[in-house]
Design a binder for these strands. Structure first.
Length: 291
DNA sequence: GGAAGCTCCTGAAAGC
DNA sequence: TGCTTTCAGGAGCTTC
């Protein structure tokens, strides 16, 4: 499942392979993949044709590519299973290929092969769309998304203040992209395990030092995942070359139900939570007293 | 206005 | 073997 580290790995791949290239043709093969583009698939293809792509940018789990001189950007969200792949034109289509982008100038210096960009998405939660940019250079529809904890401009103090002001629980807050972006279910569980915090702890009780410690764990787990190319449990997350990351082998909590906690040996538990799952150590991460 | 819950979607895996 | 059910979850939308 693509979270911040996985999206960053994809962004770096796109920067290498498609920045500066000019679009010759766009094929929208599934309407749901462009459902966030208000004017529909035909308009999406027509607008992109002939434009040169700028340097890919990222905020949280969103990434976008500015269209040179347009004041607009191509915005991408991978959802649960989205992949942005750079493939030779001759490669067979993927089963869930949703959008194909061909370039006017794609000869690969290595072998003269023509490369194309493919958006592949099994579960169709992701998609591409075009949006005007705000004064900050962000696509307007993601102006509400907070900076992510790896962003040098992320304000730790402001986050601590906002967290205390919330009347919610810590995992909900970590997944609130308007508060802190880039954290999904996997890294939320991992950071909370490292911080020895139960996912149902109320945010109002978080002191600044405790918040600083938790942020440190969030950053640590994301940087570790980034260093290993991201997390992938199956073929649903890959980089632009179709390769999986290795961080799933380093997870301490997520996906380890009934396996011993790496700190104390107590079996990790899984609890249904908001139509998904939370993994935690019942000994290291004591649940709060019933309200 | 803020918080919580629902819904979209597909396919692998499990259960019968 | 084949059908049905369960599960995975990001984020926009609806409800309270």
């Amino acid at each position: 499942m693509p979270e911040l580290p996985e999206v960053e790995v994809v962004r770096r791949g796109l920067a290498r392979w498609i920045a500066g290239r000019t679009i010759a043709e766009v094929q929208v093969l599934h309407p749901r993949a462009v459902r966030r583009h208000a004017d529909g698939g035909e308009d999406f293809s027509a607008v992109l044709k002939g434009h040169t792509l700028g340097e890919p940018q990222r905020r949280g789990k969103y990434l976008w590519i500015p269209l040179a001189g347009e004041g607009r950007s191509l915005l991408a969200h991978l959802g649960m299973s989205g992949q942005l792949l750079v493939r030779p034109e001759t490669a067979p289509d993927e089963k869930h290929l949703r959008i194909r982008v061909r370039f006017a100038d794609t000869a690969d210096a290595a072998g003269g092969t023509e490369l194309e960009l493919r958006f592949v998405d099994q579960r169709t939660f992701g998609g591409l769309s075009l949006h005007p940019e705000t004064a900050d250079g962000l696509p307007d529809v993601i102006a509400h998304i907070a900076r992510d904890p790896l962003d040098p401009a992320f304000d730790d103090d402001a986050f601590a203040t906002a967290l205390r002001r919330k009347r919610t629980t810590i995992k909900r807050a970590l997944l609130d992209q308007s508060l802190i972006s880039g954290v999904g279910n996997i890294y939320a569980d991992e950071a909370l395990w490292r911080a020895r915090v139960h996912y149902e702890r109320e945010t109002a009780g978080f002191t600044r030092p405790r918040t600083a410690e938790l942020l440190g764990h969030v950053r640590d787990v994301m940087n570790a995942a980034l260093a290993q190319g991201g997390t992938s449990f199956d073929s649903l997350y890959v980089n632009v070359n179709g390769e999986s990351g290795y961080f799933d082998r380093s997870l301490d909590a997520y996906g380890r139900e009934d396996e011993p906690c790496r700190r104390c040996g107590t079996p990790i538990r899984r609890r249904p939570w908001m139509n998904r799952s939370s993994y935690f150590c019942p000994r290291c991460q004591r649940p709060p007293r019933a309200r």
